[in-house]
């Protein structure tokens, strides 16, 4: 500690700042390379011309767009465009349902007072402690018993069914909105329904965006529940499971580079969404997840 102070005396302040700035930027650059490296590799693989799952070198020897073209043209076995549409449909509907239900639930737990409030919150907390796919087989048979197995509706239901369980962060956010605002509106004769839609919602952009974002992404990345529900019905697969199928023992040799191409294609929209919505995402999760 003492040495540092001594140093200060004879080193001009600006030089020291400069040094630390260069160090900081250098360190960030190294970290960025480490973080972007696998992604760069993914992109390179997706343009690789040589076949096979596995090469010992990093940079492809031949470059090609074939992997992308094949995704959209050779659809008799792996119907990527169809999977993409399936996922999009499921994502849109489950995102709509989840967002509305999550926000309503959180609003109820944050603002409304009723006898079952505390017990319900506790029950949800307890439910959340069980490993999620412990019950996947039961879910499949429930869906099957109402004739919904192997359908997109089933997927929408499964992805939306967790809406209530995810109340925690949005409730945290609503808790930060002063209660006096809605009390004033209630005195003016508004119903609680109106308060929610016309007063709370407009003030909650970050958490709305956060909920939309997380629920929209879920169907793009889950492959466990889809495989339990869709089983052998390839036409109803989502991109995540479809791409995952390309990596099975029989397929990997032939389809690995196509897998990379498909992965790049689904990563692009999600990345753009994330970059665009970053501010709200952070706002939502910090306000909701942590409070002093």
């Amino acid at each position: 500690m003492k040495q540092v102070n001594e140093k200060k005396k004879w080193t001009p302040r600006r030089a020291r700042r400069l040094a630390s700035s260069i160090l900081g930027h250098g360190f960030l650059t190294v970290l960025s390379i480490v973080w972007l490296f696998p992604i760069a590799w993914l992109i390179m693989q997706s343009f690789r011309g040589e076949p096979g799952a596995f090469t010992k070198y990093f940079i492809p020897k031949t470059w090609t767009l074939d992997n992308y073209i094949r995704l959209f043209t050779e659809t008799h076995l792996f119907n990527f465009p169809r999977w993409f549409m399936n996922t999009l449909i499921v994502a849109i509907f489950s995102c709509l349902i989840t967002t509305i239900l999550t926000l309503l639930t959180s609003y109820a737990f944050s603002r409304l007072r009723f006898k079952a409030r505390k017990p319900m919150m506790n029950v949800i907390l307890i439910l959340g402690l069980f490993p999620g796919f412990m019950s996947m087989i039961a879910i499949y048979h429930i869906l099957k018993s109402v004739g919904l197995d192997q359908s997109l509706v089933a997927l929408v239901l499964v992805y939306s069914s967790g809406a209530m369980m995810g109340y925690y962060i949005a409730k945290g956010f609503f808790d930060t909105i002063p209660k006096s605002i809605d009390e004033a509106a209630l005195i003016d004769g508004a119903t609680k329904n109106q308060v929610f839609w016309h007063i709370i919602m407009p003030m909650s952009k970050p958490i709305v965006v956060y909920t939309i974002l997380t629920s929209f992404i879920a169907p793009w990345v889950d492959f466990i529940f889809v495989s339990v529900i869709m089983k052998d019905n390839y036409n109803m697969y989502t991109v995540a499971l479809g791409l995952y199928q390309m990596l099975t023992r029989e397929n990997i040799q032939q389809y690995f580079t196509e897998f990379c191409a498909g992965a790049v294609l689904i990563a692009i929209p999600i990345t753009l969404l994330f970059i665009k919505m970053q501010k709200y995402y952070v706002g939502g999760v910090t306000a909701g997840g942590a409070k002093g």
């Binding site: 076995l77 087989i137 499949y140 048979h141 099957k144 197995d149 192997q150 339990v228 089983k231 052998d232 019905n233 390839y234 099975t248 023992r249 029989e250």
Partner: peptide
């Protein structure tokens, strides 16, 4: 026609025999 390779057939079959091929 459904796609289930020979190595996985029993596993997939046992998941739900009624829905299997």
């Amino acid at each position: 026609l459904g796609v289930v390779g020979e190595p996985d057939a029993a596993k997939k079959y046992l998941e739900d025999p009624e829905a299997a091929a």
